[in-house]
């Protein structure tokens, strides 16, 4: 178990981990902290699902700070494959090598064999995460896995089950110590159950009011207590409007920052109207918020809090 490995930092319990994440700038609630704690203890990947901007990606970054393991980030996109995720051969250099051999009259057969040696291998995050290293194991972030297609999911599942990648030309690279793995998804597409079941699952919700106030105070420079409370309250109410893209913590931070940039220290309906683009990034959502009565919403938020 990870806790008994002398190279790893072990946490006595959830609260200790929570405090360490806090020191690294991440305010986790109890559920998330428990899931992260279990991921470290059981060496099981952590699958974080939630709306955009709720702080999923940031978890992996904070975790890397906390454990001291290198952060290896794999950003997924449609069509991502082995070459971008695990390894690929450096074709350009292989070709050069081959041409050089031909030019000097060397044997093509022998040159070809040399082509598939480690020096021509380009290592990508998945392979790097499995390779032998001293010190803490790396933190592998597989970000926005919902954007990849299911063929890639299948490949990931295999790696996260075997902790190995096999390279036909070189053999199998197997991790002696599995890395810490965090997968995130915005649910633009549902990820296959088999992959999720391989992981611990946590639905990351928008933070509770008091927590968001604290995040704003920490992350948005120059934002006072009063403004942080107003922005958190207003963001909370905007989230209930059923928008196409409800504001995440990131947007709330941007919003508070925009208000400060205007030289204001309070959120009033007028300030909210001119800074709306900072919190709602889509024209349709801005219109919808206005149609729902933005001014009343802001007044209610400023008075009523969360």
């Amino acid at each position: 178990m990870a806790a008994s490995d002398p190279q790893e930092r072990a946490f006595a319990g959830v609260e200790e981990l929570e405090a360490a994440l806090d020191a690294a700038g991440y305010l986790a609630d109890e559920g998330l902290a428990t899931a992260v704690f279990l991921a470290l203890e059981l060496r099981r990947p952590l699958f974080l699902e939630g709306e955009a901007g709720v702080g999923k990606t940031e978890v992996a970054k904070a975790l890397s700070t906390v454990t001291g393991g290198e952060l290896l980030r794999l950003q997924c996109y449609e069509g991502i494959g082995l070459a971008q995720a695990a390894y690929e051969w450096d074709y350009a250099r292989q070709l050069l090598h081959l041409r050089a051999t031909e030019a000097t009259g060397g044997s093509a057969r022998q040159a070809e064999d040399e082509l598939y040696s480690e020096r021509f291998l380009v290592r990508r995050p998945l392979l790097l995460a499995l390779e032998e290293r001293s010190g803490p194991v790396p933190v592998l972030l597989v970000d926005e896995v919902d954007r990849a297609d299911d063929e890639f999911e299948a490949f990931l599942l295999e790696i996260l089950s075997e902790w190995a990648v096999s390279i036909p030309e070189l053999g199998t690279i197997r991790a002696a110590r599995p890395p810490v793995v965090v997968l995130t998804s915005n649910r633009t597409r549902d990820v296959h159950d088999a992959l999720k079941r391989r992981c611990l699952y946590h639905w990351v919700d928008h933070p509770a009011f008091e927590r968001e106030v604290e995040i704003l105070r920490r992350r948005a420079p120059g934002v006072g207590e009063a403004l942080a409370r107003q922005v958190a309250a207003a963001a909370g109410r905007l989230r209930r409007l059923g928008l196409y893209k409800p504001p995440g913590v990131a947007e709330a931070i941007d919003w508070a920052g925009a208000v400060v940039a205007l030289g204001r220290s309070e959120l009033d309906p007028k300030t909210a109207t001119v800074t709306l683009g900072a919190v709602l990034k889509y024209q349709e959502d801005q219109e919808r918020a206005r149609a729902a009565g933005l001014e009343t919403l802001i007044d209610a938020a400023v008075e009523g809090g969360g």
């Binding site: 070459a83 299911d150 299948a154 036909p168």
Partner: peptide, 15 residues
């Protein structure tokens, strides 16, 4: 069906 086996590129016939 595809979960069973992920596709891996084979060795390219460079020559």
């Amino acid at each position: 069906r595809r979960l069973k086996r992920a596709r891996r590129p084979g060795r390219v016939d460079l020559a």
